[in-house]
Design a protein around this nucleic acid. Structure first.
Lengths: 140, 140, 140, 140
DNA sequence: TTTT
DNA sequence: TTTT
């Protein structure tokens, strides 16, 4: 009924881009999200979180991201059930991205603020939407 | 660069619907969001937060919401500057809604779960998006 | 590095309360979170999400929640690896709750707004914190 | 009843640290949060958002942050009413921080991942909490 | 100015 | 009033 997640982490590998039988682009990323370390004694803990990206955003990620890159992801948590190769029922958790922000940028690029990209399936939403609709002001 | 807010609160008045000169629908809501009360001694504190809603979502709100209704809002915080009638520069804070969920429903309605509505300007995003795009499965 | 999730859903079963060998309370809840249905043709889809709650908040949940109840959860997504009874490596995804808000309330109770409860491990944070610290005003 | 905001932006000035009459530290930051630019024609738009930070976190910010630094803020939106010097009733919007993450770090520092700091008033919550409480595992 |  |  409401399902919203925001993550910042680094890609553990290059994005993997595929196409569905209907020709829709889908990319899969994995990011490492370090947990805050409150006491120095405990070893560093990290959550490795799978991200699924659809359509144009998938291609943008595949073309611009690589292992080690820092991104912010805005999306929702999805739990899928499936049977693995041994016929054992398993659950997969993944975050379906609505938008992704590129927080660092390879040193050889001249960009200075990172990029902001939204899901091809939507727009507007994600990290902030076009609000005033072609220059219209709020009529109040 | 990232601006995301989620609120649950009750409308303090009926939505106000207008149209821009370009014919785009805009609604304005105000919700009361009670702060958690940790010690009983202090009086209840409440934030009254202005919400701006655009396009089809604006009309859906105007047609379905009224004073006292409980909603969840997902959007972003926008700070506008303007000059008031005395020429004094003022700032207005408002939340631009990406999606709104109706959390209660008038008793005379037979709905049992509330509604989920997304910004007309986008889709997909907000409280969760259509993921598998016409029945396509993730090809991994 | 940042890991924040907000969910609204209904308990699919009563909370399960246990204690660690160190005597710390832990509760486990599962909530059903319906995905928004954009076209009526597709069947309703639901994510069943496991929630882990620690300490005092665990006991508050165990004592006050039951199957069917509607809650808002604020926390973070945690991915755990473990070996199952057949020695197969598996991953479990769960949301570790920072705070939980009770959104409905059994009709026989006289509460009128739901409750707001924070993680025993923290406070302040979660859905909003005590801000002015004993009546102190912001000195600006 | 639920009020949660996450922002990423750059400080427009150095933090301003004060103490309440009760001796509680409070810092004030302003961050610039650029809105995503969907069409190149429109000029860049930015929200300048005031952040209030309490207690130990206030001092950590004052000691470690400066103009231009990039931070992630997790907190809640607070609307305060007050009368200005001309006796005109005004409203101020500010985000009360639960936790702040330092996303870049001056080049002369050897840190490589930024820091994560929680509100002194709480803990646990914010961007993720200590979960297993002294090495205890979840007893399920 | 305010909601339950 | 503003940051990169």
């Amino acid at each position: 009924m409401l399902n919203k997640i925001i993550l910042i982490g680094r890609l553990t590998r290059d994005p993997e881009l595929r196409y569905t039988t209907n020709g829709v682009a889908v990319a899969r990323l994995t990011i490492a999200v370090d947990r805050p370390q409150f006491n120095r004694e405990r070893e560093k803990e990290t959550d490795f979180i799978d991200i699924v990206v659809w359509q144009k955003l998938a291609e943008t990620c595949a073309n611009n991201l690589g292992k080690g890159r820092l991104i912010a992801v805005d999306g929702r948590l999805q739990i899928r059930s499936y049977d693995d190769s041994q016929g054992i029922r398993r659950k997969a958790a993944e975050v379906v991205a609505d938008s992704i922000r590129f927080l660092d940028w390879p040193k050889d690029r001249d960009n200075q603020g990172g990029g902001q990209f939204n899901s091809g399936s939507g727009s507007g939403s994600g990290f902030g939407s076009e609000i005033s609709f072609n220059g219209d002001d709020i009529p109040f």
